[in-house]
Design a protein around this nucleic acid. Sequence first.
DNA 1: ACGCTAATTAGCGAAATGACTAATTAGAGT
DNA 2: ACTCTAATTAGTCATTTCGCTAATTAGCGT
Lengths: 89, 89
Amino acid sequence: MGINTVFEALSHPVRRKVLALLKAGPLSAGDLATHFDISRPTLSVHFAKLREADLVVVERQGTSLIYHLNASILEAALASLLSLKDDEE
Amino acid sequence: MGINTVFEALSHPVRRKVLALLKAGPLSAGDLATHFDISRPTLSVHFAKLREADLVVVERQGTSLIYHLNASILEAALASLLSLKDDEE
DNA sequence: ACGCTAATTAGCGAAATGACTAATTAGAGT
DNA sequence: ACTCTAATTAGTCATTTCGCTAATTAGCGT
């Protein structure tokens, strides 16, 4: 929890790519996996970090888990970064 | 180098606080240190990561090193985050 | 050259990260 | 109940991170 967790989640390229893929719309873990060259378990741990940061939300659909982007948390990170630059708090 | 390095640099609370302090204006390493409870060498390593990411720029002034925020890199990070959210670019 | 202050770099240890394979859980279908 | 597929969790290992203290580098003043 907290903005810390969010920034840590954002610090790995695989996780940022996951978010980029989800930007276009929800995808299952399996569908996401086709875009990466790492093992599914490893990717699953990346998903877990994104969930922990609330950057994604999961919905079960049969045996599949569908991942959705959580834009509001992305906004929070954006706001936090913006606050380092501008004079708005 | 690269946006990767930038996000990694941003992933630690101490380093984000350094940037927040520099937002108000340049500060020496020593002045920055007064705001933290960690040892100076440890803080120095945090500075090094910020330099590596080009998030800060250093200027020597006598025996002091003055750190400046590099807003353009912050903008790059901002843009990268924004691209995860919106449809622009 | 010496000493003083500012800051970094070196070296070390504990803990976290990120990769893998193997094992487990969860749901759907027969 | 059994089996198949989807996905996660457990266990292991190598590497990185981040904290510390000790040692080094850089500049200023005497």
